[in-house]
Design a protein around this nucleic acid. Structure first.
Lengths: 155, 155
DNA sequence: CCTGAAAAGAACTTTCT
DNA sequence: AGAAAGTTCTTTTCAGG
């Protein structure tokens, strides 16, 4: 993967907050011309440093106001079934994030739903479709304190 | 908050995956002219239905390849200190997401760091700056199975 | 009120130095 | 890299449902 310089880092810091900002405005902030910024953006998109540019929307308007954090235990034996699980997950729109972790549970998922009833349906389906999952510990999110995907760009 | 119609829902579904898609391309997908799509986008941005448009970047390139999920226990008495905590959190770039939850822990945070050492520094600082946090249970993320912020838009 | 289409304006891409 | 020309996209305007 291509190396990035000081200007790239600054640009990444900006577009992680607002990727619709005009190249000229970014240029003013980082001390570069609009052309140079555009070139760098194109290079970072093409090389995969920028993996996606997405809109965040109001969950209530989308009809999925609730969030749940599910800790899951899986059977050690067939934990190679993860690849199949991955394929299955890609199609599950309500399951936003899944992490394979160390600790008291094996997987942690962040799931969005209309209400508790719908969450129940989702987890019931999750367990029936993926028998390697033995147990689910649920935390209901009462309040989003901070939500983001921002990653600091180290110098 | 303004109501949204079928076209808005389709547009939201698209820009949650790619917010740089051209209005004409979106129009082709949803069956609307480019002008109409632009108008709807502007309205949804102004009204706060679209809360942000952000770039996702490669964590390794950013120098923060590791992710940790921290479950935190807080003292019941001064859990109104949440508002101060919130202000403090806003400045903590390594702490991406924080949820106030029911269950065995009170808060769950998703934290990004260069390595375990840096994570240790972050949590040490977290606890010294916020004495109401009594205990932290850490899950180290071994693999990101799915990462996203996509929210399905109910009809 | 919202659409589609065309004109006007702004941004991006390319080329050149 | 920056600047200017060329191209594309967005914004505004306007007529019509």
């Amino acid at each position: 993967m291509e190396p990035i310089d000081h200007f790239d880092r600054k640009i990444l810091g900006i577009i992680q907050v607002d990727c619709q900002m005009k190249a000229e405005a970014i240029g003013d902030l980082v001390g570069l011309s609009a052309s140079a910024v555009q070139r760098r953006l194109k290079r970072m998109r093409d090389s995969g440093i920028i993996t996606a540019e997405i809109a965040l929307i109001d969950r209530k308007v989308a009809g999925n106001p609730m969030t749940f954090i599910a800790g899951m235990e899986i059977e050690r034996e067939n934990y190679d079934a993860l690849s199949k699980f991955r394929v299955w997950l890609a199609k599950q729109e309500h399951i936003q994030q899944v992490y394979y972790v160390t600790g008291s549970v094996d997987l942690i998922a962040i799931i969005t739903a209309r209400d508790v009833g719908e969450y129940d349906e989702i987890t019931a389906n999750l367990m029936s479709e993926n028998p390697q999952i033995k147990r689910i510990h649920t935390n209901v999110v009462l309040k989003d304190i901070k939500l983001g995907m921002f990653v600091p760009v180290a110098e």
